[in-house]
C-alpha cells in the first residue's frame, strides 16, 4: 500500500480507486429549513476513468465535486482521492493536495483578470517550467493569445486557458464543474475532446454537467437525484 506521509491516512480497503466516496452526507441550514443535497453517496472512480455526474440544478453535483477537491467538508462520510483521505487532512495538507493532485475547471472559468493567458496558466504550476507552459498553450490552441488578458478572450479561449491551468502540473484528477456550460457547441466539443485526451494519457476525469453531449465522452454517467445516485 502506498501512503504519502504528508497527506491524511487512508483506509486499507480504499487504495485501489482513484476517487472513492463513502457514505457522503451533506446538510445545509437555510433559515429554519435543513437541506440535505447529498445522502449517503457511495461510489468509486478508477484511475483513467472519465465519469460524468448529471442531475437537475441544486441536486448537489457541484457540492460533490468540491468535497472531492477538499474545498468543502461533508457533514459525514469520507472521500479518498489519489490515495489521500481528503476528509482527514489539515488545511496545510489540503493545500498541498490540491496543488499537486487536483486540477479544477469551472463553468465561470475563474481566470485571474489581471494576468494574461500565459500567467494564468503559470498560476497552476508548482515549479517554474516556461517550456511546459508554451507547449500547453500550443496544444490547446491558445499560444497566439499568450499575452491577452481574460477580458479580451472569447468564452472558448477562456475555458481552454482554464483547462491549461488545470492540466499544467499534470494532476492525477481533473474535477470539472459544468466546463461547457458557457460554451457554444463547437467550443464545448473542443473542451470535452481535450478532457478526453487527458483521460487517454492516464488521467482521471470527474465532470459535473447538465449537457447531453458529454455522454459521448464519458465512460460512465451517474445521475444524482434527491441526494442519491439513482443511475450508474
Amino acid at each position: 500500500m502506498i501512503r504519502l506521509e504528508h497527506f491524511g491516512k487512508i483506509s486499507d480497503n480504499l487504495i485501489m480507486s482513484m476517487i472513492e466516496f463513502r457514505k457522503i452526507r451533506q446538510q445545509f441550514a437555510t433559515g429554519r429549513k435543513l437541506i440535505e443535497p447529498l445522502i449517503d453517496i457511495t461510489f468509486s472512480i478508477e484511475p483513467g476513468e472519465f465519469v460524468t455526474i448529471q442531475g437537475p440544478s441544486g441536486a448537489g453535483k457541484s457540492t460533490l465535486l468540491l468535497i472531492a477537491g477538499g474545498l468543502l467538508q461533508p457533514t459525514s462520510g469520507s472521500v479518498v482521492v489519489a490515495e489521500t483521505e481528503v476528509t482527514n487532512c489539515s488545511p496545510a495538507q489540503l493545500s498541498r493536495f490540491r496543488s499537486e493532485k487536483i486540477g479544477f475547471v469551472f463553468q465561470m472559468f475563474h481566470l485571474v483578470p489581471y494576468l494574461n493567458v500565459r500567467d494564468n496558466i503559470r498560476m497552476g504550476q508548482t515549479t517554474k517550467d516556461n517550456e511546459a507552459v508554451e507547449k500547453m498553450m500550443k496544444r490547446l490552441g491558445i499560444d497566439s493569445r499568450a499575452e491577452s488578458f481574460p477580458a479580451m478572450l472569447s468564452a472558448g479561449e477562456q475555458q481552454r486557458t482554464a483547462l491549461a491551468r488545470a492540466m499544467i502540473h499534470q494532476p492525477s484528477v481533473i474535477l470539472a464543474d459544468e466546463p461547457t456550460g458557457n460554451l457554444d457547441p463547437e467550443n464545448a466539443a473542443q473542451v470535452l475532446g481535450l478532457l478526453d485526451e487527458y483521460r487517454k494519457e492516464g488521467g482521471t476525469v470527474l465532470v459535473v454537467s447538465h449537457g447531453t453531449d458529454i455522454r459521448n465522452y464519458a465512460d460512465r454517467v451517474l445521475t444524482l437525484k434527491e441526494g442519491k445516485i439513482v443511475t450508474t
Binding site: S95, R98, F104
Partner: peptide, 14 residues
Amino acid sequence: VSEIGLLRALGYDS
C-alpha cells in the same frame, strides 16, 4: 472573492 476562491482551488494556503 472569485480570485481568492480560485487561489484556494489551486492550493494556495492562508
